[in-house]
């Protein structure tokens, strides 16, 4: 796939405090990222089989106060897949992907969608 046409969007809610900047969807095009970072995210999407995931992925643990959830969306041309991840995220591949996307979309001075 062409890196330029892949856009990744992440939003988060819940957690110990409300951060409007993190709750607002933040997105990045893979083509804007350094090659190494973009490759890592592409690999992360494959490892987590992101496009095969259902629209909600929930952990099996109990739910309590201050826990978070994320919405991760990948757009590639007309193809769009969005997954809501409710903590605890148990699949290590998915955690890794989340961590990579978090870093990529939280750059200072980066633009918001």
């Amino acid at each position: 796939m062409s890196r330029d046409s892949v856009r990744i969007q992440l939003s988060q809610e819940g957690g110990l405090a409300a951060f409007p900047g993190l709750a607002r969807p933040r997105s990045v095009e893979l083509g804007e990222l350094p090659a190494e970072q973009a490759e890592a995210i592409e690999q992360g999407l494959r490892d987590a089989r992101f496009h095969e995931l259902p629209s909600v992925v929930e952990g099996s643990g109990p739910r309590g106060a201050d826990q978070r959830q994320y919405t991760l969306t990948v757009e590639e041309g007309a193809r769009r897949h969005s997954v809501k991840l409710v903590e605890p995220v148990e699949d290590p591949h998915l955690r890794e992907l989340l961590s990579l996307v978090r870093r990529a979309t939280r750059r200072r001075g980066g633009h918001w969608n």
Partner: peptide
């Protein structure tokens, strides 16, 4: 977790992340 930016109560126990160092320090 890794770079985990949160702390929570899961109904039984308290859980603390280390923070990512860029936005948050350890919780």
């Amino acid at each position: 977790g890794r770079d985990y930016d949160n702390a929570f109560w899961d109904g039984r126990r308290m859980v603390f992340g280390d923070g990512d160092g860029e936005l948050f320090n350890r919780f």
